[in-house]
């Protein structure tokens, strides 16, 4: 129970910082640089996808189920083709669950992945913006926003996972 409360505190703190950075980035991109709001939001979301890929691969990629490293003894070319370090079972559980065999990594993932990056990116403003674009008849902009965000977000996560694997690779 204490452990759970500590994790919640980590997530709350990270989430607060993430929300603050999101507002800061939005006011920089939208307010200072004058980008349209949907493009500024897409930029923030895509940066977050890149970051989550890097951090997740960096934390999860280093571990076997017993807590020892898996990536270090494999050549990089094989790592991603065979996904030897891919989490077993359900890969979409929260990183806090996937990393429960190592407490410090679990706390780090709670703070950074679930808290900071999870709160830095947002879906609610994205769907609200899309609804308003549709209501105003700006279907083209809505399409660009939706297709661009989702495909570039997926690409960014993939790139991030590759970059994260490189970070843990033994030279």
């Amino acid at each position: 129970m204490m452990r759970f409360l500590q994790l919640i505190l980590c997530i709350g703190f990270g989430g607060g910082l993430g929300a603050l950075s999101r507002e800061g980035s939005m006011s920089l991109l939208h307010g200072q640089l004058g980008m349209p709001r949907y493009i500024a939001l897409a930029c923030v979301n895509i940066i977050g996808c890149l970051l989550i890929g890097i951090v997740f691969a960096f934390l999860e990629g280093t571990l076997r189920r017993d807590g020892s490293s898996r990536l270090r003894d494999l050549p990089h070319s094989r790592q991603l083709h065979e996904h030897p370090w891919w989490p077993e079972g359900d890969t979409t559980l929260s990183p806090v669950e996937l990393l429960r065999m190592n407490r410090s990594l679990q706390a780090a993932s709670a703070l950074v992945i679930t808290g900071f990056i999870g709160s830095f990116t947002t879906f609610s403003s994205f769907s609200l913006l899309t609804v308003q674009q549709l209501q105003q008849g700006a279907a083209l902009e809505a399409c660009i926003s939706v297709v661009g965000s989702i495909s570039l977000g997926l690409l960014a996560a993939w790139l991030g996972v590759h970059a994260g694997c490189r970070l843990v690779r033994k030279p």
Partner: peptide, 24 residues
Amino acid sequence: LAGFCGGLTTFSTFSLDNLFLAYR
């Protein structure tokens, strides 16, 4: 509202989940 809704929803985890689902 901006903080809470933005914190509750996430795009990064959504994309990471999509990546894993795309493989399997």
